[in-house]
Simulated scan of single mutants.
Amino acid sequence: MTVTPPGWLPPEEYVETIARATSYACLYFTDTRGRPVQLRATYGAEVWQWPGGNMDRWESPWECAVRECLEETGIIFEGEQKLLASHFIGHRGREWPANRIGFCFDGGTLCDEQIESIVLDPREHTEVQVHTMAGWARMMTARDFALLEAVDTARRTGTVTYLEG
C-alpha cells in the first residue's frame, strides 16, 4: 500500500503552483584589447546583445549558449564552460507574463579576423560592433549597460555575479 504524504500534489498540479520563467543563455566575447563585442538587435537601435537566445525545451543553458552562438554568428564555440552571471528579470505584467532567467557564459577573446568573419542572421541582428566600456555607455540603455558592466567586471575579476532587473 502506497501512502501519500499530507499536502503532496501530483507533479502536474504542483507545477501549476510555482513560478514560471522563460530562460536564455549567451556567450560574452571581447576583442584582443578587452573591448566587448556586441550585436545590434533588429528590433531596436539601442538594443545590443551577445550571441544567445531562449533555451529550447529540455536544453541546458550551456547547450543553448553554444547553439545560439553558432546560429547567430557562425562561430563554433569549443571553449570552456565558465559562467559569468546569472540574471533574473521579474514578471512585468502584460509586457511579459513570466519571470525571465538568464545565464551569461565567458566566450573568451576573438581576434580581429574572427570578428570580421562573423556571419549574422539578418532576422535577428544588423551589425557587429566593438567599443570600450565608455563607448558602449553612450550607445546603450542604462539597464542594458548595467548588465554589460556587471558581466565585464565578473570576467575581469574571475568572479560570478548575480543581477536582478
Rank of each mutant, 00 (worst) to 15 (best):
Y162S: 09
C26I: 06
H91C: 11
E127W: 07
I76R: 15
L110K: 02
I89L: 15
T109Q: 03
D31S: 04
R123E: 15
E164T: 15
D106R: 00
E71D: 12
C104W: 08
S86C: 09
N99G: 06
Y28V: 12
L83I: 12
L163D: 03
D56A: 10
R143Q: 06
R20G: 14
T159A: 13
G135C: 02
I115E: 06
V3G: 01
T17Y: 08
M1T: 15
R57N: 11
Q129M: 12
R155K: 07
W50M: 13
V130E: 01
A45I: 12
E16R: 08
S23E: 13
A137T: 03
D106I: 01
P36D: 01
T159Q: 15
R35M: 11
S60W: 02
H87C: 07
Q49F: 09
E72G: 11
E63Q: 12
T157Q: 14
P122D: 09
G34K: 00
I75W: 04
T132V: 06
P6W: 05
V37D: 00
P10E: 08
V119A: 15
L120I: 12
E164G: 10
E46R: 08
G90A: 09
I18F: 09
G52W: 01
T157C: 12
E127Y: 05
E78G: 15
E16L: 14
E80Q: 10
P10K: 08
W48D: 05
V15W: 13
R33V: 09
E80K: 07
W50F: 10
F103Q: 00
A137L: 08
W58T: 13
G90V: 03
H125T: 08
M140G: 04
Y14V: 00
T2I: 07
G108E: 00
W8L: 03
V128H: 10
L27C: 01
Q49I: 13
A21D: 02
A98W: 12
T30D: 01
G107W: 00
P36K: 01
V15I: 11
A98S: 12
R123G: 13
E12Q: 05
L70A: 14
V15D: 11
L120A: 07
P61V: 01
M140D: 05
N99Q: 04
A142D: 08
F88D: 04
T30Y: 02
E113V: 07
E71H: 12
L148C: 11
Q38H: 09
A45H: 07
Q81G: 09
G102Q: 00
C111S: 06
R40K: 15
C69V: 06
Q81E: 08
D152S: 03
E68A: 02
R20E: 15
P97S: 06
T22S: 14
R33H: 15
L110C: 07
V66W: 07
F88T: 11
R156D: 10
Q38F: 09
R67C: 03
I76A: 15
L70R: 14
V160I: 13
F77S: 03
P36N: 03
D31F: 07
V160L: 11
M133D: 04
F105P: 00
S117M: 03
Y28C: 08
T109C: 05
A21V: 06
G93V: 02
D56N: 10
A65N: 01
W136F: 05
P6Q: 06
S117H: 06
L39E: 06
V37G: 03
E12I: 08
R94L: 12
